[in-house]
Design a protein around this nucleic acid. Structure first.
Lengths: 244, 244
DNA sequence: TAAGATTTGTTCGTATGTATG
DNA sequence: TCATACATACGAACAAATCTT
């Protein structure tokens, strides 16, 4: 005599699974109640009951006249501090960081790299940073090839810039300058980052230097704007002299 | 005997004026050479001569097989330093800054303002910042009404936050924190900023504090991403203690 | 700016199955 | 067996917010 689960509960479970699988992405719109009731062959009330259960869990948010939307995950704060600490940033927000390496290669420097690093050949390290499996951004970092001959092997093995540079003898490096603009996601990158074409991306262009002020990394990162907020907090102790 | 200007020169002048008026926005595509020669009733070579003149000035860029495009104006660098200096930033890039005031009013604080300023009523100062007449961003600043009773009048008269606060007795104030995200421009704001709907905007949310660390301004600014780059440069003298 | 279509929110009413006393 | 209460499910209509044209 197993008690049959209510229809609304099984519908809620189905939708819950589909949301988890990304069928309806964060911030995305669910089908209308009418469409769902047609799909499941039930009355609209029954669908509403299921949706109410999801809303109870904070999984969806409904807006009268607009639709029912998958609750957008809160943005991950990404402090543009003196040090680059991707893992810490993600972990601090209660998520699990991961990294997907797309490319490691050595090639001649392009104009921007030559200007930033002042060298003719660079190691390239390109990949995707994820939090809980969801892409936060795509990074592309260049390093002077001459100074760090074995960096590609270390990057392959460690998949971490900080660790690889440390093994290459660079104890510490800091952010010298960052330029922030915004772009729209286009075909190839939109797919990599799992966003719709035309979604807003934050593009940061950063130069990192060693303790002597010599540039050691030139990096460009495209963050998914819906998933990341960059934060800037002037460090205490600095007191610039500037005049209005 | 006034020497008649060559036809190609007058066509160039016409196109130059239309680009300046925004008929062809920065980055936008000009009509094809064939279309232009039809419009002006001249041979395609004449149009090419005119376009070559514009290209010489760096006003347009032609790409074989794609078309001729209005050169994107270089982005105005906007340093997120400790002080907010809009005028300096624009002047430094060789442009003429101006400001268009949209709204000055006093009203109850919303949740974000209450959280940032800790007060129940705020003065609102809203407007557009322009460089050479082109909108760079829309700002909306809130100030604690109780602390600065006469601020609206001062803002009306001076149209400058720094000057108005100075007159209200606030000698100095600095940026405490800034949060940066990106959004797509929607209907009302897109018009105000003179960009297409769906263009990328940089949204900054900043809290400024006085010398005692008390918040005095909560401001949100939407920058047109194509026209502005935010720059972050850690100030010398700071030496944070952080560990990997 | 205005009108119409779309979509969720709310409130009636009806019917069925199940547990309880 | 009957009455009651409750959760479930379907149907219809309208209100209110939103989107589109």
């Amino acid at each position: 005599m197993t008690k049959r689960a209510p229809v609304w509960a099984s519908i809620a479970a189905t939708l819950r699974a589909e949301i988890a699988q990304g069928v309806y992405p964060p911030g995305g719109k669910l089908p209308t109640e009418a469409a769902l009731s047609a799909r499941f062959g039930v009355n609209r009330h029954t669908v509403r009951h299921a949706l109410a259960a999801l809303a109870e869990d904070g999984l969806v948010v409904s807006r009268r006249g607009a639709g029912v939307f998958v609750a957008a995950a809160p943005r991950t704060d990404y402090p543009l501090g003196r040090r680059v600490r991707f893992q810490q940033n993600v972990t601090a927000s209660g998520r699990t960081p991961s990294r997907e390496v797309l490319r490691i290669e050595t090639r001649p420097a392009d104009d921007a790299e030559r200007a930033a690093l002042g060298c003719e050949a660079v190691h390239l390290f390109e990949g995707i940073s994820l939090a809980d499996g969801l892409p936060l951004g795509q990074f592309r970092s260049s390093f002077p090839a001459k100074r760090f001959p074995d960096l590609p092997e270390k990057l392959h093995r460690l998949a971490s810039v900080t660790a690889a540079l440390a093994e290459a003898g660079l104890r510490d490096y800091t952010r010298a300058s960052t330029r922030i603009t915004a772009k729209l996601a286009r075909a190839p990158r939109a797919g990599l980052l799992r966003v719709a074409e035309g979604a807003a991306l934050l593009r940061t262009e950063a130069v990192n230097i060693d303790a002597d002020g010599v540039p050691v990394e030139y990096g460009i990162t495209w963050f998914v704007a819906d998933r990341v907020a960059l934060t800037v907090t002037p460090e205490p102790g600095a007191h610039p002299a500037d005049v209005s």
